[in-house]
Computed example of a mutant assay.
Amino acid sequence: MSLRTDRLGGAEVVPFPRRRAPGAAASDRESRLPVLIVLHQESSTPGRVGNALRALGHRLDIRRPRFGDPLPETLQAHAGAVFFGGPMSANDSEDYIRREIDWIEIPLREQRPFLGICLGAQMLAMQLGARVAPHPDALTQIGYYPIRPTAAGQALCPDWPAQVYHWHREGFELPPGAELLAEGDDFPVQAFRAGSAFGVQFHPDVTYAMMHCWTTRSYDGLSAPGARQRHHHFADRAVYDVAERAWLDHFIGGWLAHRPALAQAAE
């Protein structure tokens, strides 16, 4: 099932609000709803994204459809949904991959906040009719690589980091009707928006512990064309992580508040 782009709502760029100060009172019921978290491996965690959501007062409704967890028929009982990454591909034929891509039609139709990270962004792009594929020269991005926010990305959320953490072999086209928020070199589409849904090719969710785990258990990936060697992951983290973490904190708060007026009026 592929979403028609006329359901995406207006493309007007509305800047994300600044994150509410810790301890500030929640003014609407949205802040009390849980956030749906979709993970793809038994040992996966929502990492720093989960930490940012908990800091805003949200509970996490963690589900793993790959291992039999159902997905809700509506997002009316959730503040939003986040689909995380994994070693699989959005092009894989497994039933759970197809079901997850089809399910993304629900937050798009209901205009609820949706965030796809790496694989999750590729699933969102595919639901919107874009192609997901490896780099034509078989290049990967494993480590830190530069990104460049577009004018729309800067207007939406300033202070983008100069480089961000990646771990992927495939990229995607900009979906029809979507707005490019950040671009890169080998993989041009790094972040995009379609209504109240956002996709990022990179991994702002990765904690220091997760980086140790990934670079140890998936060490063979570090020999792929374009991949950074393990020691560069940690050296670059010391340089770029503060900016990426600050950007994520701002982005997450604004993402949850960034719903079209139509969706808010319907509640």
Rank of each mutant, 00 (worst) to 15 (best):
S44G: 10
D6E: 14
I117Q: 04
V49A: 01
R29D: 13
L115T: 07
A224V: 00
A81E: 04
P70F: 07
T140G: 08
G184R: 09
Q201N: 14
L33R: 14
C118S: 02
P136H: 13
Q154F: 04
D159M: 06
G253S: 09
Q111T: 10
F251N: 03
N51A: 11
R148A: 15
G253F: 14
T207W: 03
P176C: 10
E267N: 10
M210P: 00
L174M: 05
H203A: 00
L139Q: 14
A224I: 00
A162Y: 13
P158Y: 05
G153M: 07
D28I: 09
A209M: 04
C118Y: 02
T5R: 15
G226P: 07
Q127P: 02
P188V: 13
F114N: 03
P15S: 08
L124Y: 06
R32Y: 03
A194F: 11
P149I: 08
D95V: 08
D92M: 00
A266T: 12
E183Q: 15
I104S: 13
L262A: 15
T150N: 10
M123G: 13
R217L: 13
D69I: 10
P87R: 04
G226C: 09
H40F: 02
L248W: 02
F84M: 02
A152M: 09
A11D: 14
P113I: 03
F198D: 00
L56K: 08
P65N: 08
A243H: 11
L222C: 07
A266C: 03
N51C: 06
W167E: 13
P176Y: 12
D137R: 15
T207K: 03
A178L: 08
P107M: 01
Q141N: 14
R59H: 07
V206F: 08
R131I: 08
E173H: 08
